[in-house]
Design a protein around this nucleic acid. Structure first.
Length: 890
RNA sequence: GGCCGGGUGGCGGAACUGGCAGACGCGUCGGAUUCAAAAUCCGAUGCCCGCAAGGGCGUGUGGGUUCGAGUCCCACCCCGGCUACCA
């Protein structure tokens, strides 16, 4: 029979008949009651005055208030909450804050689409999502909540911006920028994915504009070095950041230009090949090109430059875009051997990396080799390949280590050692120097948008750009703005840019008095706000941007949880910011996040139909009926509405476009927050993708209800019994001893799973196993086991555990501690050894635990099980591993 | 192309340093209950052969090391993510 999704579980459907039945599991009632109690008692408000070793700071990446919670949030925040509650049970004082990354473009889009003011829209969303978070039972310290668009936060951020200006970390320059055609706005390099805007997917083009930059590259080396200390970060993130920083060491070499008194300076990581240069490549938009080009070549060069200017970033730098080069007609001299080499302008050379010019060594560089072949340029071998005739014609570039040749007095040197030798020699001769180049660029922070934090600068007619004085802050956004989707609304406001806070005309001081001034209308990239919010949580009430004592008390964050998609954006900006904050005197902790957990995506099945044109209509799982064969394999899917088949598509990340999302609100209403949390934690380890399956969630709901019913059916007996000993030795019945041992085994498994890598899934499985083992054992022991289960599950499903704990007659669960286990309590007197023959298990034998190897071997050989297995075969070798296994070799 | 993950039943996933593969959950099948269904409870469930006892095969593929390999080594295939002319 096909199963329908999102069935009402029986316990909920009967509400009208049973809502007075104190025995029924009613998640909504229990959960909201406990949530109100936690709120009223301020259960999760955190102090700042306890010794740091007794404290724990767990943080999840705060959300953009898009309107309502989605499953990704639910998963992320459930993981964080389970950790927070676990650490509290462990006796630690936990800081677990929440807030809102509330500046950003969707608010303006909503204004354009629906006429809602961005501010109203944003704060309405926050109010709704806050209620959803509370309904999930997350244990946040709401006293520290803020939104980054709050005047208080924005004001202090402007103060920090001015401090960064004083520190020399802010500058403005005209630059070629990534311009999103979707947003009408500049993007940072990190926000361009595959040549497209990371938010809208619209093409990104190159445009020249004056821009504000943060000198992030000043910290490039420290950002790279710091990665080595982040040993509790996933290797993948460290690798991505390291690649993004992209440090290369090599040499800058000056090539005199023939007929000019200037040099063409190149950057190379292979100075050992400098004797093999046969041409030069220069970026077409390099400033020297105009001076170099000969009249004959000018039309061709201009054509190449025009082509590049018209290209999008994607077309220009895509891997399979054709490589084009045009001779400039100019030549330069290789300073190491006096050879004359032509200078080409080439589209694959980037003006803003290195020096914007490259020395080309076709014999030892794959791309130069291809270019030389295409343009019929000479290929000159200067590194001999071991075991290969150096005179033989080359069919491909040799890029590995070999022996230097045709390189003057360097001949015979290994090329890897030659790098340093050539750099030293070039420096002596005055032809070059050692150089380090980074792929990482300064962070462009200007955005031509309304709903962002204004950059606190003004422009005077004679004074030019001037930072505001701290006493002139804050710069507040005007409320009366028009949103029509065309450019920056701040720019077109009639008076905001020229009016001071008190309503008078805006002026700026000059040596001769005051002159009219105009405000900067760019606002800050929203990554700016998320670069220091984790520090502000430690002192959300501080008058100053940050209270150093409290920042240093709580930082670094013990565990930071979020998606890996922020590896090179948020996580790198935040690390940069923390270092800058240190140098501004706000902190002395240079790395903000001690341990990082990147949770996987939430994925779900997709269903669709395709029309003749290949357009797909996607259906939500709630609209679809799936049939299985008798093995449980899905056979076909049909749309409920018309009974006609739909295609079962791939499993993909939940998204609007694939219509495979699930609304957490509906799940909470139907199954409760505890069941939803339990599923999010149980169905996959945190760092792996979570496959969404409503039937799985229903199973978790059933587990909770079984737990509830089990205790209630025995409530009178259990609550009047005294919690018994957990020591197997205190029981005589085998079933009691076994249960006591299993209790220790379960606590051990759960504790290790939590401590090692937050493997909630295995911790929960262990709890379910222990629950399944409950039968008619000793009553006191069973009470002990049930109480332990409630404690072990409390981080995951806090409401039901707190409620049952209390109904058993206990004080508040929050005063209790995570149960302890003893290794010696889980050992049995005898061990059931598997007996293998040629690696295949053929039988078992039960032997006392404390036999040593010799005694064990004797016991094994004498055992009838062995004799039977060996019948007719000769034992060649006997392997006995105490405590593990018996293996017979025949 | 480069880098990083990952391939285990019908599905999600277990398996600490090599030691009984498939814990736990879902699904499926059978049974109880029911006028009937839903819900609930009990049982079975890696695949193949067999009435059964039992046997054979099994952790992407092919080799190797070992008494013993999901786990270690070599080669390859497939999937996912990130990155993409960085000199």
């Amino acid at each position: 029979m096909p199963t329908s999704r999102l069935r009402y579980p029986a316990g909920l459907r009967r509400t009208s008949m049973t809502d007075t039945d104190p025995q029924a599991y009613e998640p909504t009632q229990i959960e909201t009651a406990w949530q109100q109690r936690w709120q009223a008692e301020g259960s999760f408000v955190t102090r700042d005055d306890l010794p740091r070793e007794q404290c724990y700071y767990v943080l999840e990446m705060f959300p953009y208030p898009s309107g309502k919670l989605h499953m990704g949030h639910v998963r992320n925040y459930t993981i964080g909450d389970a950790v927070a509650r676990y650490q509290r049970l462990r006796g630690l004082h936990v800081l677990h804050p929440m807030g809102w990354d509330s500046f950003g473009l969707p608010a303006e889009q909503a204004a354009i689409d629906r006429g809602a003011h961005p501010k109203t829209w944003t704060y309405d969303n926050i109010a709704h999502m806050r209620e959803q978070l509370k309904r999930m039972g997350f244990s946040y310290d709401w006293a520290r909540e803020f939104a980054t668009s709050d005047p208080g936060y924005a004001h202090r951020e402007q103060q920090l911006f001015l401090e960064l200006v004083d520190q020399g970390l802010v500058y403005r320059k005209s630059a070629i920028v990534n311009w999103s055609t979707g947003l009408d706005c500049v993007l940072a390099n990190e926000q361009v994915h595959d040549g497209k805007c990371w938010r809208t997917g619209m093409p990104v083009i190159q445009k020249e504009l004056p821009q504000w930059f943060l000198r992030t590259t000043a910290y490039a080396q420290e950002l790279l070095d710091g990665l080595a200390t982040l040993d509790q970060w996933p290797e993948a993130v460290r690798k991505q950041q390291s690649d993004w920083l992209g440090r290369s060491r090599g040499a800058e070499i000056d090539f005199p230009i023939e007929g000019h008194d200037r040099h063409l300076t190149v950057f190379t990581t292979r100075p050992d090949t400098v004797f093999g240069v046969t041409f030069m490549s220069i970026a077409p938009d390099h400033p020297l090109v105009a001076d170099l080009v000969t009249e004959a070549q000018r039309p061709a060069i201009d054509a190449l430059r025009a082509e590049i200017a018209a290209q999008s970033a994607d077309e220009r730098t895509g891997a399979d875009s054709p490589k084009k080069g045009v001779a400039t007609g100019a030549w330069c001299i290789n300073p190491v051997n006096g050879e004359r080499v032509p200078i080409y302008a080439a589209n694959f050379v980037l003006a803003d990396y290195g020096t914007g010019a490259v020395m080309a060594v076709p014999a030892h560089d794959t791309r130069d080799f291809a270019f030389a072949q295409a343009h019929d340029l000479p290929i000159k071998r200067v590194i001999a390949e071991d075991g290969v005739d150096p005179a033989a014609p080359m069919t491909e570039a040799f890029t590995a280590v070999g022996t230097m040749m045709a390189s003057g007095h360097f001949d015979g040197l290994r090329s890897d050692a030659g790098i340093d030798a050539v750099i030293d020699w070039l420096a002596e001769q005055g032809h070059g120097r050692e150089a380090i180049t980074w792929r990482y660029r300064d962070w462009g922070v200007s955005r031509q948008r309304y709903w962002g934090n204004p950059i606190p600068y003004v422009y005077g007619e004679s004074m030019g750009m001037v930072p505001l004085r701290p006493q002139d802050l804050p710069v507040s956004l005007p409320e009366d703005v028009v949103f029509d989707g065309r450019g920056n609304p701040l720019n077109r406001h009639p008076s905001w840019a020229t009016t001071a806070a008190d309503g008078s005309p805006l002026t700026v001081a000059t040596p001769a008095g005051r002159e009219p001034a105009r405000r900067e209308t760019d606002t800050l990239d929203t990554f700016f706000e998320s670069s220091w919010y984790f520090a502000r949580y430690t002192c959300a009430d501080a008058e100053e941007p940050l209270d150093r004592r409290r920042v240093d008390h709580w930082l670094p964050v013990d565990l930071y949880i979020g998606g890996i998609e922020h590896a090179c954006m948020h996580l790198l900006y935040a690390r940069f910011f923390q270092k800058a904050l240190c140098d501004l005197g706000h902190s002395s902790v240079r790395e903000p996040f001690k341990r990082l957990l990147c949770q996987g995506m939430v994925v779900a099945e997709t269903y669709y139909r395709e029309d003749e044109a290949g357009n797909r209509t996607w259906f939500n799982a709630t609209e679809v009926e799936v049939e299985h064969d008798e093995r449980g394999q899905p056979l076909r899917a049909t749309l409920r509405q018309d009974g006609q088949p739909v295609v079962i598509g791939r499993i993909e990340k939940m998204s609007k476009s694939k219509n495979n999302g699930v609304d957490p609100q509906a799940l909470i209403e139907r199954y409760g927050a505890d069941a939803t949390r339990l599923y999010a934690l149980r169905a996959a380890p945190p760092e792996k993708d979570l496959y969404w399956d409503d039937a799985g969630l229903a199973g978790d709901y059933r587990f909770l209800r079984r737990l509830w019913t089990h205790i209630h059916d025995r409530l009178e007996a259990l609550s009047t019994a005294t919690s018994g000993s957990d020591d197997p030795a205190d029981y005589s019945a085998a079933a009691d001893q076994a249960l006591a041992r299993k209790l220790h085994a379960t606590i051990k498994r759960a504790s290790e799973a939590m401590d090692r890598d937050f493997a909630f899934n295995t911790a929960i499985a262990a709890c379910m196993e222990l629950f399944n083992a409950l039968a008619d054992q000793d009553l006191g022991l069973r009470r002990r086991v049930v109480e332990s289960l409630l404690l072990l599950l409390a981080p995951m499903t806090p409401h039901i555990c707190a409620e049952l704990w209390q109904r058993l007659g206990n004080q508040d669960l929050s005063a209790a501690r995570w149960p302890a286990y003893r290794d010696d309590a889980l050992l049995e007197d005898s061990i059931r050894y598997p007996v293998q023959v040629k690696g295949v298990v053929r039988g078992h034998l039960e032997l006392p635990r404390d036999l040593d190897r010799a005694a064990l071997e004797q016991a094994v050989q004498a055992h009838p099980v062995i004799t039977e297995i060996l019948a007719g075969r000769e034992l060649k070798r006997l392997i006995v591993v105490p405590g593990k296994i018996v293996n017979l070799v025949v």
